[in-house]
């Protein structure tokens, strides 16, 4: 009952505050559109597996950020790539010379094909080379690779900010104290907030995901339903984290200062930049951030077309983050009222 009252009040505030509502939906769409138009590539380390490839050629391919490992002949190239994290496997044992590309990052695809072509030189002609993609295809653009991460990031960013600021305002305008002078329980207050914002976030996530896939035309191999679940879970973790951190901020400006500290670094570990190149001193941070899991799951579904069996761990971890933040929120409210 009291939770319902909170939910209704939050939704009414949204309806009255059209600018915030527009910001949460239009801003991510605008930025995603702009990024899709201007994106550029970057340098990478490549890991290639080789089957029946002449030593002389391996030597030519190797070096300059490329490592080549010799492999036994294998039937299941896809599994080999998935398990040992190869960017590509060369198979020269057959009538045709095959290149199997992992395929989800177009920058890597292009770099590998270039490198192999230049090392072949006079020995072999290009004609008898077949390129196959394990995931993705030659039509995939760089933005298709970054898209899922950015969709996740912008949803996270805006939900974090708006939820944090509105809970902070509840405190600065005195209504939090006024609410705590009523018989409302602390968990009712937190849950009311989570559900109220959660409902709005659901609509927001759906619109952003729909726009990214059908208007920007991001690559979409898997089910839209999974994308929705992942973005919603990611948004919930942003919502609960935003509310939690707002209790450490004295005003809106301080809340905004949390963005470069808490939100932006998550982007570095979310796979937007190649994770293999991250220094060991920092690599442990990634698994502690919600966006790491959200982005991974989104890429699995949107690029690789994987289903629930591949993403459930990520989704469960995101739910875990949200639950943890909810509990911490209920504890943090003790600062204002013990019971």
């Amino acid at each position: 009952m009291r939770i319902l009252a909170l939910v209704i009040r939050i939704l009414r505030q949204f309806i009255h505050d059209k600018r915030t509502m527009a910001l949460m939906i239009i801003a991510p769409i605008l930025v995603l559109t702009m990024l899709s138009l201007v994106f550029n590539g970057e340098e990478l380390k490549l890991k290639i597996g080789a089957v029946n490839v002449p030593n002389a050629m391996i030597e030519r391919i190797e070096g300059n950020n490329v490592t080549v490992t010799k492999l036994e002949a294998t039937e299941d190239v896809k599994r080999e790539i998935k398990e040992n994290d190869y960017d590509a496997i060369l198979n020269f044992g057959r009538s045709e010379n095959e290149i199997h590309l992992e395929g989800s990052d177009p920058t890597i695809n292009k770099a590998i094909v270039e490198r192999i072509r230049s090392s072949m030189g006079s020995e072999q002609t290009e004609a008898n080379m077949a390129i196959q993609y394990v995931y993705g295809s030659s039509e995939m653009t760089t933005f298709d690779h970054f898209g899922p991460v950015l969709v996740g990031f912008f949803i996270f960013f805006f939900v974090f900010l708006i939820a944090g600021v509105s809970f902070l305002r509840e405190r600065t305008q005195g209504t939090l104290l006024r609410l705590l002078a009523s018989p409302i329980k602390r968990w009712e207050l937190v849950l009311g907030y989570v559900i109220g914002f959660g409902l709005f976030t659901m609509i927001q996530s759906a619109i952003i995901a729909l726009y990214s896939i059908y208007v920007i035309d991001l690559k979409m191999e898997g089910s839209f339903f999974y994308v929705l679940i992942i973005t919603l879970m990611l948004a919930l973790s942003a919502l609960t984290l935003g509310i939690l951190l707002s209790s450490f901020a004295k005003n809106e400006l301080q809340m905004i200062q949390f963005i470069p500290l808490v939100v932006v670094p998550q982007l570095f570990f979310s796979g937007l930049f190649n994770l293999d190149t991250i220094s060991d001193y920092l690599s442990w941070i990634g698994p502690l951030t919600p966006l790491y899991y959200g982005a991974e799951a989104l890429r699995d579904v949107m690029i690789k077309g994987q289903g629930i069996s591949d993403i459930w761990v990520d989704v469960v971890v995101l739910i875990g983050f949200s639950l943890l933040f909810i509990i911490l929120n209920i504890i943090a409210l003790k600062k204002h009222r013990r019971i």
């Binding site: 009952m1 009291r2 319902l4 009252a5 909170l6 209704i8 009040r9 009414r12 505030q13 009255h16 505050d17 305008q173 005195g174 209504t175 104290l177 006024r178 609410l179 002078a181 009523s182 018989p183 409302i184």
Partner: peptide, 23 residues
């Protein structure tokens, strides 16, 4: 309270309805 604890973006009626169900 000494400071008015009201949701200024809502109408008076919506404020009252909210606090009524909370109390």
């Amino acid at each position: 309270a000494q400071s008015d604890a009201l949701y200024v973006e809502l109408t008076a009626k919506e404020n009252l309805e909210f606090f009524a169900s909370i109390s």
